[in-house]
Amino acid sequence: GADEAGLDTILISMPDAPVSDKLSQTLLVAVANEQLPPRAEVVSLYCGFEAGTIDSVSCIRLDEHLVRLTARDLRKLETKVPLETLKTVVDLAVDIGREGREGKPVGTIFVVGDARNVMTSSEPLGFDPVKGYSRAERNIQDQRVREAVKEIAPLDGAIIVSSDGTVQAACRYLNATAANVTLSKGLGARHWAAAAITKKTKAVAVTVSETNGTVRIFHRGEVLLRVEPFRRAMKWKDFDNDSNPSDQHAS
């Protein structure tokens, strides 16, 4: 087997997932474990047509392959937060993880949706930099607002975003117990807070790791998606048959 041959192995549990999803997850784990550099070119051999038979080969550039998310990925979250709002927040988080601020790495947390319950489950840490602005001046669909959010991202506390993309508040301390939450070793207080608030409410949390810029998406107390930081901007790849055009929410 691979161990006897001296090859590194990565075990994933995705029995019903398509081969492409299994391959992407394996590559993500390999990058996270520093088994592969983020800009590596990988030759992949796999069973593309017949189970148990290696019959396909692909040459993959990681900096192009792993920065793509599909609308289908976010629909797995089964949330009433509109897909466009989620995509905008994730894009913003990836920018922060990749660029940092003034050359320094930045860690932050966004809590999206179910804003009323999130606000009652949190408290201000002090000065709120978005207080006093109109809703239009706080909507992240506006490029100027997104740039302003990047400026406040280094501040302590969570940034609360309503389902319509309005930044409700910033610099919030999240009051949610992590007693019934289980996360992987190595994740810090920000990730535990994200898991806890999404366990307590119907919100989705998006974190940026200050250590390496990795973006994680939490829902129902668990990490459901992870985006590794790359030098290129993330690309969204949409499929016409992902959903009925009348769908307005990620579900």
Rank of each mutant, 00 (worst) to 15 (best):
S20K: 12
S20C: 07
D21E: 13
D21V: 08
D21H: 09
D21S: 14
D21R: 13
D21I: 07
K22S: 10
K22L: 12
K22Q: 15
K22T: 03
K22Y: 02
K22W: 04
L23F: 06
L23P: 06
L23D: 02
S24G: 05
S24K: 15
Q25H: 14
Q25G: 02
T26H: 03
T26I: 07
L27A: 06
L27G: 03
L27T: 04
L27H: 03
L28P: 00
L28F: 00
L28T: 01
L28W: 00
V29G: 00
V29K: 01
V29T: 14
A30N: 04
A30D: 02
A30F: 00
A30S: 12
V31C: 04
V31S: 02
A32P: 01
A32E: 00
N33G: 10
N33K: 14
E34W: 02
E34G: 01
E34T: 12
E34L: 07
Q35W: 06
Q35F: 03
Q35N: 04
Q35A: 07
L36C: 05
P37H: 05
P37Q: 13
P38W: 05
P38M: 06
P38A: 07
R39W: 08
R39A: 13
R39Y: 09
R39K: 09
R39Q: 13
A40G: 10
A40T: 10
A40Y: 07
E41P: 03
E41F: 06
E41D: 09
E41L: 10
E41I: 03
E41M: 09
E41K: 11
V42R: 06
V42E: 08
V42T: 02
V43F: 11
V43W: 03
V43S: 10
S44E: 05
L45F: 15
L45E: 05
L45P: 06
L45T: 08
L45Y: 15
L45S: 12
L45V: 14
L45I: 13
Y46W: 14
Y46E: 09
Y46N: 03
C47M: 10
C47Q: 15
C47N: 12
C47H: 13
G48M: 09
G48F: 05
G48Y: 06
F49Y: 07
F49M: 10
E50K: 15
E50N: 13
E50I: 13
A51R: 11
A51Y: 05
A51D: 13
G52N: 04
I54P: 02
I54L: 14
S56H: 11
S56A: 13
S56F: 05
S56W: 00
S56I: 04
S56P: 07
V57M: 14
V57D: 01
V57A: 12
V57S: 01
S58M: 07
S58F: 02
C59Q: 11
C59W: 05
C59A: 09
C59T: 14
I60V: 15
I60Q: 04
I60W: 08
I60F: 07
R61G: 07
R61C: 03
L62M: 06
L62S: 09
D63H: 05
D63G: 09
D63F: 06
E64D: 15
E64H: 09
E64F: 12
H65V: 11
H65W: 14
H65G: 10
H65N: 13
